[in-house]
């Protein structure tokens, strides 16, 4: 039985690798500056579409963190995102008009780029609205973390998705280009997350937060997954199996301690609930390119007539990583 499961997982991994290999032809290179990547650089991999206003802050945030190079897959942007990124000296850009959905929500493209350019590097696979926070991120660059992980032979690093939201209706305060999104969306849920273990892939399945509370109170099983493993020391043969929620081989998903201790972990601050929200929801709903038949966006659309306010009096206002550590959302593990 165990052997059969292992064989099945291996088949799945091979199949994902094959898909990535086949889908590589959908990508056409716009700017390839990967020759400038230094051997110890941490690389960021992103798929995006029409995210122009968010990009300047995104790049600045990760450059300040010490990221060495950015690799973008542009899925048919029409707002100048591609041109903007192409002009950046530390970005390589590929573009495609192919379907986001049929490429496994972008993961096939990224699996290919990860394999080709990420092998041997620490890689951070993100969405443009995700901001990585790790222990000591205010005083230590990301290389300090990856060096430390290397010394413990830890190959993957978990960061739970933490949905951030503004106080008041989501669209109320417009987002200016270059602005820190968490000046507006500075609130989060601190203690309503539900965890169960996925026996097959060995990862933890985390749900909860404002999305479960406000949009899925009647079908919690459909609430979006919040567990993510964005930071991975990439090696040949690895693949992301479902977004960045889990990896194959599955040993990489075992980022948690089962004997009572705490392993090191971080958070991905999720600036999803930010203006222009209604526009984005209507547009994505029309494209129908998202997970589970865009279930999530259909639920959002139902609430559109009355713009939702996710804030409640128990919401926490974001201060820094130490606050998240104390609240038990992330952990320093034995890093001191």
């Amino acid at each position: 039985m165990k052997l059969r499961q292992l064989r099945q997982l291996r088949r799945e991994r091979r199949w994902r690798q094959f898909r990535a290999f086949r889908k590589r032809r959908e990508l056409s290179c716009v700017a390839n500056r990967t020759a400038t990547i230094k051997p110890d650089a941490v690389l960021v991999f992103v798929t995006l579409r029409n995210e122009r206003p968010r990009l300047p802050y995104f790049l600045r945030y990760y450059r300040d963190m010490g990221v060495g190079h950015f690799l973008f897959v542009d899925n048919g942007s029409e707002d100048g995102s591609r041109e903007y990124l192409t002009a950046q000296p530390d970005c390589s850009v590929w573009t495609t008009q192919a379907s986001y959905k049929s490429s496994g929500f972008g993961i096939d493209w990224l699996n290919w780029l990860l394999r080709k350019y990420g092998t041997g590097h620490w890689t951070l696979t993100l969405d443009p609205d995700e901001f990585f926070v790790y222990p000591f991120c205010d005083t230590r660059p990301i290389n300090a973390l990856t060096d430390w992980l290397d010394s413990y032979e830890i190959r993957s690093f978990p960061a739970m998705l933490l949905d951030m939201y503004p106080k008041g209706p989501i669209d109320a305060e417009p987002y200016r280009e270059g602005q820190n999104p968490f000046e507006i969306a500075s609130w989060f849920d601190s203690g309503n997350y539900m965890i169960s273990k996925n026996g097959k892939m060995q990862n933890l399945w985390i749900q909860g937060g404002p999305r479960a509370r406000c949009f899925f109170p009647d079908d919690p099983a459909d609430a979006p997954s919040l567990n993510k493993i964005p930071l991975v020391k990439w090696a040949r043969g690895l693949v992301y199996a479902s977004s960045t929620h889990m990896l194959l081989p599955r040993g990489l998903n075992r980022v948690y301690d089962e004997w009572g201790g705490e392993m090191i972990s971080g958070c991905l601050l999720h600036a999803k609930f930010l203006s222009p929200w209604s526009e984005k929801v209507s547009e994505e709903l029309e494209r129908r390119q998202h997970y589970a038949n865009s279930r999530e966006y259909r639920v959002y659309a139902e609430t559109l007539s009355e713009p939702p306010d996710l804030w409640c009096k128990w919401s926490e206002k974001y201060i820094n990583w130490r606050q998240l550590e104390i609240l038990g959302l992330m952990s320093k593990g034995n890093w001191a």
Binding site: L204, E258, G260, G261, G328, L329, K332, G333, N334
Partner: peptide, 22 residues
């Protein structure tokens, strides 16, 4: 010492992404 204790014993009663005891 505190760092090692956090890694080996953890915070009692906490269930999170990197601490999910059997």
């Amino acid at each position: 010492h505190k760092a090692v204790e956090r890694r080996t014993k953890g915070r009692p009663g906490l269930y999170m992404q990197s601490r999910f005891p059997k």
